Simulated scan of single mutants.
Amino acid sequence: MVADEGHRGRSLIAPGAERNDASARALADAAHLQEFGRDIPSTIDWCVRIGRSAPSAGAGETAVLWDLLAATARRDVAAARVLEPHLDALGILRQAGADRDSDPWRISRIGADEHSSWGVFAAEGAGMRVDAHETDAGWTLTGTKPWCSLATHLSHALVTAFVGDERRLFAVALRGPGVSPHDGPWVARGLPDIVSAPVDFDHAPAAPIGEVGWYLTRPGFAWGAMSVAACWWGGALGLRDALRVAASSERADQVALVHLGRADAALWAARAVLREAADLVDARAGIDQRLLAERVRGAVVHAAGTALGEADAALGPGPLVSDTAYARRVADLHLYLRQHHGLRDAARLGRLVVESEVEA
């Protein structure tokens, strides 16, 4: 359940601020789509349409971007899971200088244009590796890449591949020669239509994006990580909405108000973290962007987990078995949050804190 759609004109990240026109139009368009987030082809088409005018991180519009992502996730978590990597890919291409007015990396060679739908495939897995080779005809990719979300639906992807011992980013046409997406295994109950399975590359033509190592070392890598957190936060707002409805019932008691209050406080604190982080990103402040991203993700995943726990305790099994939209939101958000790696990410944050203090 999504409460009070009349607030579409106000930013979620910056309360009181007007949502920009492009985002407002995008969300109004989404409200009229049948099976938004479940009909994957139509949801991807929506992403492509709004991507042509969507805000981008690090350009004075970071809060606007995160508001759009959060508002999309508040409406449907799966739709945000489709939108975020598409906008991230467009942002990466802009950061590399490959915008619509120029083509320094020759992405038109692989048929990429303003109608392309994008994924970002940068995960690594045991026993899987993609290597890039330069030939007289250009670069090609060979190997298997894990966790490639929506590869059977998208037209293009940005893929990390090894050049020797270092990684470089490449653009690839997913419907081109030498590309074979798997359709599983994918037995997920959350995000069931966002299949994330391996892709096999066999001398697939590719266009390099940025120099060797650029993808992982650019500030935008941290910005993308925080954009995912904005989606988590927006998805969790839908749980607070359900708690608010329950606490407003004539049968509600003090305990219902406690559950709502705890969830609201956690999510409000996470909102403040996102808002300050957006300002720091746009100001290109001296803070280590990796440290900023880990702090933001840690704060947001904690708040989203709190909302899940409070909703579970307050609402019980009823909506999980009788309310399709609520049950989908819970399952989708649970899986999406696993992009945060728990104690491993907390340890990474701790290490960055230690390093930052030593450097200071």
Rank of each mutant, 00 (worst) to 15 (best):
D332R: 07
W223Q: 10
A73R: 00
A30C: 10
L27R: 02
H7K: 10
A197W: 06
W105M: 04
L154T: 04
P185F: 14
L274K: 00
L335T: 04
A266T: 14
D76G: 08
A252M: 14
H259Q: 09
I40D: 03
A157W: 14
A263N: 13
E211W: 15
A252K: 13
R218K: 11
V321P: 13
A78I: 07
D21H: 09
A28L: 10
D76I: 08
R19F: 01
R106P: 09
T140C: 15
S11I: 08
A123E: 06
L260I: 09
A96Q: 02
L174F: 11
S248F: 10
P219H: 11
I209C: 03
L280D: 14
L33Q: 05
S108P: 08
A247Q: 15
D136P: 11
V187C: 15
R189G: 08
A22T: 04
C47G: 12
P219F: 03
G111E: 02
L191G: 10
P192L: 11
L33S: 06
A303H: 09
V321D: 15
L267Y: 13
W223P: 02
D202T: 12
A73N: 00
V199F: 12
V159S: 03
A151V: 07
R175A: 15
S23M: 07
R106G: 06
S108A: 13
A307G: 10
A30E: 11
H153W: 15
L90T: 06
D39Q: 04
Y336D: 01
R175H: 15
A171L: 14
A161T: 02
A3L: 13
A304Y: 06
A206M: 08
P85M: 07
P146E: 11
V179E: 10
D345N: 12
L291H: 00
A222T: 02
I209L: 11
G318H: 07
L150G: 05
D67P: 02
L174A: 06
G176A: 13
I110D: 02
A346T: 10
A31I: 14
A54Y: 08
